[in-house]
Structure formats: structure tokens, C-alpha cells
């Protein structure tokens, strides 16, 4: 479904992503972990079309991606951002946020689709005409997920979708993402700094450090500690250390 080959992204003199290659099958999930500045989010933004300055080869469903994307691309690929407080327009109601993708793509039946989307992400119908500041962090993230699903995409790019949320809400959102994937056969690429979260959702994990993907490892091997790169081992140790306590 998604293939990325030798992706390079440059910010002025700094090469933030230095030759990253990975592939994700249809209906599967791929996780990218790394610390801040490792280039993990930059990969996602290049894939999503938010950052046009990249080189390499990326294809989605066999179509090669160009720096400028077609409207159809944006219907098929959507993104969920880290900060649910920043990813919703502060002066627009949930209703408005959800109808926007439909209006842009000229999809009709807006009223029914919004009601259906709200129930799909388990938001009460009463939330429809609220402003973001009247919602909790978890509810906002559900709205952001519902908005991404409005155009019925095939690929969902998840940029730290739960790291700004409380742990109990994180569990709810992760379950929701798993259910949606089951139901809609979505393909996920998820970026996170939390190894346990990534391993929970993604069977394959890429570990990034300094702009390179230093290791690709299955979630199973990661759990069992069969790591090959010292950075992966470091991250794993930090993550398990607290679990044992």
C-alpha cells in the first residue's frame, strides 16, 4: 500500500531525514519510534504532503507521489495530529470541522454522515455543536479522528495521536484506532516516542535515530528483546524498567 524508498528531507543545511526506506502492506500498521529530533515526524509530514521539499521515491497504492498532491490524494490519505488542543480550529464547532472535508470534496449527505461519524468515534450527538474548548482532550482527539475519516480515506497517518492524552484516555483512543482499522481496513503509519504504544498497535516497528532508520523490528522481537541496534535496546530498556517496578 505504502512504499518509501531512500527518502531524504533537508531543512537548509541540515539533513533531517537521511535515506529512509520502508513499506507497509494494505490494512497493516507500521510504527516509527525515536526521540525528538530523530526525524520521525518529518517522514510523516513528507508522506502527508505538508512538506514538499523532499527527494527519494514514495508511492501510495502504486501511484508515485509528487511534491504537489492532487485533491484525490487528500481524500485517500489523512492525518491525525499529536496535540488535540492545536489541531482543531478554535472558532469552529465540531459540526463545522467535520463538514469541511465533505464540502471540499463535494460529498453530499452531510447531515447523516456527520451523525454517523460521531457515533463511529463514540462521541455523544450532543457534542456536535460544541466548540473545541468545551470538549475534553480525549473528545477532541476523537473529533480529529472523525474528521480524518470523513473523506473515507484508505491511509491514516498518526503523529503521536495519544501522547498528549491521559493514560485512561490513551487506552480508549488506541482501542478506537484498532476497531476502526478492523472495520474499515485502514492502513496506518504511526509515529510515537512511546515504544509500548507503537508495539501495541503495529506489528512492524522502525526505530529512527539522527535521521536514519537504524533498525526495523517486528513487535514480537521487540517484546522478546531480540534487538540488533544498541539504540533500540536502550529505548526498550527504559520502557521495560518502569513496567517492572
Amino acid at each position: 500500500m505504502i512504499s518509501v524508498q531512500d527518502l531524504r528531507v533537508r531543512f537548509g543545511p541540515v539533513e533531517a531525514v537521511r535515506g529512509v526506506t520502508f513499506a507497509v502492506g494494505e490494512g497493516s500498521s507500521f510504527g516509527i519510534v525515536g526521540e525528538s529530533g530523530s526525524g520521525k515526524s518529518t517522514v510523516l509530514r513528507a508522506l502527508s504532503g505538508l512538506n514538499p521539499d523532499w527527494s527519494g521515491r514514495m508511492t501510495i497504492a502504486g501511484t508515485a507521489l509528487t511534491p504537489k498532491r492532487s485533491r484525490d490524494f487528500f481524500r485517500r490519505v489523512q492525518m491525525v495530529f499529536q496535540d488535540p488542543y492545536g489541531s482543531l480550529h478554535p472558532r469552529q464547532t465540531v459540526d463545522r470541522a467535520l463538514s469541511e472535508p465533505l464540502l471540499v470534496h463535494g460529498i453530499g449527505d452531510i447531515d447523516r454522515r456527520i451523525r454517523q461519524a460521531l457515533s463511529e468515534v463514540a462521541l455523544p450527538a450532543a457534542a456536535r455543536f460544541r466548540y473545541p474548548h468545551q470538549l475534553s482532550g480525549g473528545q477532541r482527539q476523537r473529533v480529529a479522528i472523525a474528521r480524518a475519516l470523513m473523506s473515507e480515506p484508505e491511509v491514516l497517518l498518526l503523529d503521536e495521536p495519544t501522547s498528549a492524552l491521559d493514560v485512561s484516555v490513551q487506552a480508549e483512543v488506541l482501542n478506537l484506532l484498532a476497531d476502526l482499522q478492523d472495520r474499515r481496513k485502514l492502513t496506518y503509519v504511526m509515529v510515537s516516542h512511546n515504544l509500548a504504544v507503537v508495539a501495541h498497535l503495529c506489528p512492524m516497528v522502525g526505530v529512527m535515530q539522527g535521521g536514519e532508520m537504524v533498525e526495523m523490528i517486528s513487535a514480537e522481537d521487540l517484546r522478546a528483546g531480540r534487538t540488533r541496534h544498541p539504540h533500540t535496546a536502550d529505548l526498550r530498556r527504559l520502557s521495560t524498567e518502569l513496567e517492572e517496578a
Binding site: S48, G49, L50, R69, S70, R71, F73, F74, R75, V77, Q78, M79, F81, Q82, D83, G86, S87, L88, H89, P90, Q92, E100, P101, V104, H105, A144, R147, S151
Partner: peptide, 21 residues
């Protein structure tokens, strides 16, 4: 901001983004 990035990702035109968002 992320919310403008999200609107850009819907494929909305620049005119629409400026006027409505």
C-alpha cells in the same frame, strides 16, 4: 498551526483556507 495543516490536508484551496479559516 496543526488546525490549518489539517485543513490543507483536506485538499482545500488556498482561497478557501484564507477566507474560511
Amino acid at each position: 498551526t496543526d488546525f490549518i495543516a489539517a485543513v490543507r490536508l483536506t485538499g482545500a484551496s488556498s482561497v478557501r483556507i484564507i477566507l474560511r479559516h
